[in-house]
Design a protein around this nucleic acid. Structure first.
Length: 632
RNA sequence: GGCUCCGUAGUUCAAUGGAUAGAAUAGAAGUUUCCUAAACUUUAGAUAUGGGUUCGAUUCCCGUCGGAGCUACCA
């Protein structure tokens, strides 16, 4: 509709107004609620160019459009806003065409380019937590959105399966896992503990012992005992100690932290973990076996979690495979002068001309850092998928700087596709008690949380659900759908860019702006349709009144909502649309009889609207990764 | 210190530079002889602050105040 109006304005505008029309003047928006009209043209730009009052210009355009455009029944001018009123037949035609399209809102599959969406990307030393849930639901929903918008999509993750953090868990397990009567140490099989939980437990164990040792080292240092301390550490310690004098409290705390950090590196246990990393990189068989065994446990655990979350991946990248890939690229870039080498052998890039810092890309000992690996992985991906038109990295906003640097480096290395890499940066999830901190035990475990929301949904649904006809299995599927639906919606309805607060009580709410509210409406419509049987109607006899138009308008906005949501990498746009639609429908449902309506044309129109609202809700929820139960 | 992001009802969230700043929740008052009351209706309540640009600013620019993140030869 807007396109047609724009065309006629461009072709006839000069004739009507006597000046050339600049396309940028033509700005439409949906007519404001409570004002008569369907679409609004803003005429301020026209008025400025013509040097006439906006209302007068609007009146002139409106008169011409009304007489020359068939679907414009009327117009109304309010200040600089020209509101067009569309004809009733237009709306009934819209409803019929929406009804005929079973995949309404979904673009032709693979009609757009191939994109890769990376999400999850966990470390293999501890279980997934609430922060991962936002990441994973978001990444999955964006992948689904891109698909719905016509893109071919590859879902991927990089598994951070190597490094000092893994060695910490390995070492702690090796040292502290109790030996059982059959000579085995604790495993998922013999303890019944989920693999990722078990490994995480030993990571915590490591940190505990580390803290104890740090205390001991500090006590020794303060007592003047520097045996077992490296000369460099001693020198640094004395320097920091001197720096403490005469500083304010805040500065002193910062220095104390640095001293602690120094002491950490002098502990036996951390040295042992570092030794282990060296042995791992040297492919020491025993270390390698331990590493692959414990990672295997973690993957089994993650699989269970991912399955419950309802997400999957098309392609996995393991850091242990890719961490060396970037090295060649760095050496190549060094030869071409993109990077430079310091006397100690470390390789850097100077980004100060771009307003950033100098950044390390390869350690003095020749080993890879995070950045090295990411350079390599990105290039590898474009090798693996030559048709790839871009990568979406779903990673928290604390890494904004990292990705800015990464994309800049890729660009400087001469990869034109660097411009097609996008950091989908999302905000942290806070708890009412403040930030999640693993050290303080305030982390919300993903499995525990999912269990909790499903339990809550179970209780509530048993209280008020219409589930008498459902079997035991169907019920448990339903409880799962409602609990998980609520959780997903709760995390997805907020603009991804924004930091959000996770309130455990609100996350299991069923009323208001929640997933179950939308699911409920969908189920209720299905119940209505079951009772109605097949819908017989005469296309030309449909009766459309004001209340119906509001809903058809909303339905018609679904495809552009998908587009906007996909373009902005924001499932929240879609979530909020579904909520608006649900609210509007519920209000309509309350005041308009449907099955009992005696006017055949009106009854048919209302049934068609109901059916298509349910269709759109289901399509939309599915994109968000949320189930839409038939009854609840 | 430097860089980046964020300040909207009591609370949690909305609003491509547009009309009277929307919802939810908590509060107050209502709606079941009728299609699922997990619903609906009514009511009260907010743009941190000072400037600027604009016909028009929650939105863009500058300052102030408040909060967060980054600033590792960790990933």
């Amino acid at each position: 509709m807007e396109v047609a109006l724009k065309d006629i304005l461009l072709t006839k505008g000069k004739e009507w107004l006597g000046i050339d029309i600049d396309p940028s003047w033509i700005q439409f928006q949906p007519t404001r609620k409570g004002v008569r009209g369907d679409v609004t043209l803003m005429v301020f730009s026209f008025a400025k160019a013509l040097q006439l009052p906006p209302a007068e210009v609007a009146e002139r355009i409106g008169k011409h459009v009304k007489s020359e455009v068939s679907f414009v029944a009327d117009y109304e001018v309010i200040q600089g806003f020209l509101n067009f009123v569309f004809s009733e037949t237009l709306w009934s035609d819209q409803l019929i065409s929406i009804n005929q399209n079973d995949s309404f809102g979904i673009a032709e599959p693979n009609s757009k380019q191939l994109v890769m969406v990376e999400y999850a990307s966990p470390n293999t030393n501890k279980p997934l937590h609430l922060g991962h849930l936002r990441n994973i639901f978001l990444g999955y929903a964006v992948a689904q959105l891109k698909k719905a918008y016509g893109h071919q999509v590859i879902k991927t993750q990089v598994i951070n399966d190597r490094g000092i953090h893994i060695c910490k868990s390995m070492l702690a397990w090796h040292r502290f896992a109790p030996l059982q009567s059959n000579g085995e140490r604790e495993t998922p099989a013999n303890s019944g503990l989920k693999g990722d939980k078990l490994v995480g437990k030993y990571y915590v164990e490591f940190e505990k012992h580390l803290q104890l040792e740090v205390k001991e080292v500090l006590a020794r240092w303060n007592a003047g005992d520097f045996s077992n301390t490296s000369a460099a550490a001693l020198e640094k310690f004395q320097e920091l100690n001197l720096a403490l004098v005469g500083k304010d409290e805040k500065a002193q705390a910062a220095i104390s932290d640095k001293i602690k950090e120094l002491a950490k590196n002098e502990t036996e246990i951390l040295r042992a973990a570092k030794d282990m990393l060296v042995r791992w990189e040297g492919r020491d068989p025993e270390t390698y076996l331990l590493w692959s065994t414990m990672n295997g446990w973690v993957y089994e655990g993650f699989d269970v979690t991912y399955q419950r979350m309802g997400v999957d991946f098309d392609k996995l990248y393991y850091e242990s495979d890719t961490f060396l890939l970037g090295k060649d690229q760095v050496m190549d870039g060094l030869a071409r002068g993109v990077f430079y080498q310091k006397p100690d052998g470390s390789v850097w890039i100077d980004l100060t001309p771009d307003g950033l810092d100098e950044k390390l890309v390869l350690r003095a000992d020749g080993t890879a850092v995070y950045m090295t690996q990411d350079i390599g992985t990105a290039i590898e991906r474009f090798h693996d998928y030559p048709a790839l038109s871009g990568i979406v990295y779903t990673v928290g906003n604390e890494q904004d700087y990292h990705f800015k640097v990464l994309f800049l480096i890729l660009q400087k290395l001469g990869y034109a596709w660097a411009a097609d890499c996008f950091h989908l940066s999302y905000g942290m999830v806070d708890l009412p008690s403040g930030k999640m901190k693993s050290r303080e035990g305030t982390v919300v475990d993903a499995d525990d949380l999912m269990e909790e929301v499903v339990n809550a949904a179970t209780v509530m649904t048993q209280e008020r659900g219409q589930i008498a006809e459902l079997s035991e299995t169907e019920r448990s599927v339903l409880f799962e759908s409602i609990g998980m639906g609520g959780l997903k919606y709760y995390l997805l309805k907020v603009d991804p860019k924004k930091r959000m607060l996770f309130n455990p009580e609100e996350s299991i709410d069923l009323t208001g702006n929640t997933g179950p509210f939308i699911q409920y409406t969908h189920a209720r419509i299905n119940s209505l349709l079951r009772k109605a049987g097949s819908i017989q109607f005469d296309e030309s006899a449909l009766v459309i009144e004001f209340g119906e138009i509001e809903l058809i308008k909303l339905l018609a906005a679904f495809p552009q909502t998908i587009a906007e949501s996909a373009d902005n990498y924001s499932p929240a746009v879609l979530a909020n649309y579904l909520y608006e639609l649900t609210k509007a429908y519920n209000s309509f449902y309350q005041q308009s009889p449907i099955l009992t309506e005696t006017n055949e044309g009106l009854r048919a129109a209302r049934l068609l609207i109901s059916k298509n609202v349910a269709k759109v809700l289901k399509t939309g929820l599915t994109i968000l990764g949320i189930n839409a139960p038939e009854r609840m």
